[in-house]
Nucleic acid binder design. Structure first.
Length: 457
DNA sequence: TCTGGGGTCCTAGGACCC
DNA sequence: TCTGGGGTCCTAGGACCC
């Protein structure tokens, strides 16, 4: 906690939905929901018009559709969000050299480093109003909510108070008056599990939290969380605004429309994800030593398996081989709804560039299997290929495919999976099977004449 | 057919080393 | 034949954030 209100928190209102409404005037004033639009999707952002129907972030899209069937459901255009976010960050950095982005739509600004005459409440209030007007200009009309206070914690709480399009400046010395009546869940880091633990000992508000001793909180919540919560309850927060933090891990994951049971398909999906991760590592000049796979089973049980290489890699073949090997130990017979691959233990350099090629080091690939025979003779690695179309060009409801057993309609495509509903002797709407995009078993396909189009179930 | 995707941080236990 | 003790690395899981 500083003596003056020198920390500003800015939060763009309903950001993804607002960008969509900005770019598509027909959506303005209407409910817009951005998120996963498949059968297992969840809401990322709902416009305020959609929130009026009870649609919320993290709600399943299925439930959102039930509450607000007439909303526009969009899967998101992250390039547009990134560009808009960059414009806002540029604006903030023109105000203060010390800006800490928290996500695409949120950032802290250290006003002590800004060119302000002083940090009086009146001065920072005028500055914040000007800033909000500037955000509107550089974003083409998006609104931001802003909080200003003597700490990160209170500034973030404050920015939420008058959403959307609001500004709250908390005068130094009044922080505890503001916080005490509030529910503990306003504290960042207090989620459902912590709320429940606190509820069981009768703690609901921050005033209640102030009554619990620090030792008791540490016993209940662990060392780090306990000490932090005790401090925050009394608005004690010295955390600095930190410019750019370094990336610690890179990962790709996917939830599939139907649970996966075919191990070969899982392997080919992991291989594809490993290639995506490795490509992103290379693009950012990074490499990492620890490969992790994530497997979510049919019942939502989530397993992680990891292994650490002797030296960092950005080679998709190495990541893929290790990922497939980690899968070997897992029982996936009940079905898998999510697969993911990640790399952590990042270094911003690749070891072989400093110490020669990794093949010179007998230990370099020790934990993984030896190089595949088809790779051994390649003197020059092929250039990084562009990301393959995850639908493989298969169009749901449009294409007919054959495998060795018969013919079927393409029912879904995406994330490297083609789902096919096969015809049987009894019914034209038979069993569903999934294949990897590019599976040679599915090379014969054709476009049916319009009168053969299947009707949607 | 409840429950995304990309991250961060913390905890706890075991291996290993001095 | 009695189990110290600290530090670091690795692995697995959980909570949380937007």
């Amino acid at each position: 906690m500083r003596a003056q209100a020198s920390v500003l928190h800015l939060d763009l209102d309903a950001f993804f939905a607002a960008v969509e409404q900005r770019d598509k005037p027909s959506l303005r004033g209407k409910p817009v929901v951005v998120g996963g639009i498949g059968g297992r999707g969840v809401v990322s952002t709902a416009s305020y018009e959609a929130r009026a129907y009870g649609v919320r972030s993290a709600m399943s899209t299925r439930e959102a559709r039930a509450r607000c069937p007439h909303a526009a459901y969009l899967s998101g255009r992250f390039d547009a969000y990134r560009a808009t976010s960059a414009a806002v960050l540029g604006l903030l950095r023109s105000c203060s050299p010390l800006v800490e982005p928290l996500s695409l739509d949120e950032a802290f600004v250290d006003l002590a480093q800004a060119r302000l005459a002083d940090l009086d409440v009146a001065t920072v209030t005028a500055f914040a109003e000007e800033l909000r007007a500037s955000v509107r200009e550089v974003t083409g009309g998006l609104t931001a909510s802003v909080g200003v206070a003597s700490s990160k914690f209170v500034a973030k709480v404050a920015s939420d108070l008058e959403k959307p399009d609001g500004l709250v400046v908390v005068p130094p010395g009044t922080e505890q008056d503001l916080l005490r009546p509030m529910h503990v869940s306003v504290i960042p880091g207090v989620g459902p599990a912590t709320v429940e633990r606190l509820r069981r000992v009768g703690v609901h508000t921050i005033a209640d939290l102030q009554q619990i001793s620090e030792d008791e909180l540490v016993r209940m919540l662990g060392k780090a969380h306990g000490h932090l919560l005790h401090d925050l309850a009394f608005a004690r927060d010295d955390r600095q605004v930190e410019a750019q933090r370094e990336t610690k891990s890179v990962s790709v994951e996917g939830t599939y429309e139907q649970d996966l049971t075919d191990r070969k398909l899982m392997e080919s999906l992991l291989t594809r994800q490993a290639a995506d991760v490795a490509r992103r590592l290379r693009k950012n000049g990074m490499s990492g030593r620890t490969v992790t796979i994530k497997v979510r089973l049919y019942d939502f049980t989530t397993l992680n398996r990891s292994a650490t290489l002797p030296s960092p890699t950005d080679d998709e073949a190495v990541v893929a081989r290790l990922a497939r090997r980690l899968l070997e130990d897992l029982d996936t017979s009940g079905g898998v709804r999510l697969l993911g691959v990640g790399v952590s233990g990042l270094a911003d350099w690749v070891q072989e560039e400093l110490f020669g090629h990794e093949d010179d080091d007998p230990e370099a690939d020790a934990i993984a299997e030896p190089p595949a025979p088809d790779r051994a003779g390649a003197a020059v690695p092929p250039p990084a290929d562009p990301p393959a179309d995850p639908t493989g060009g298969y169009r749901p409801g449009m294409d007919v495919v054959h495998d060795e057993h018969g013919r079927g309609w393409v029912w879904g495509s995406g994330k490297g999976v083609v789902t096919v509903r096969f015809e049987t002797a009894e019914t034209p709407v038979g069993p569903v099977r999934s294949f990897a995009v590019g599976d040679p078993a599915l090379t014969r396909w054709q476009h049916p004449p319009p009168d053969e189009m299947p009707t949607d179930p």
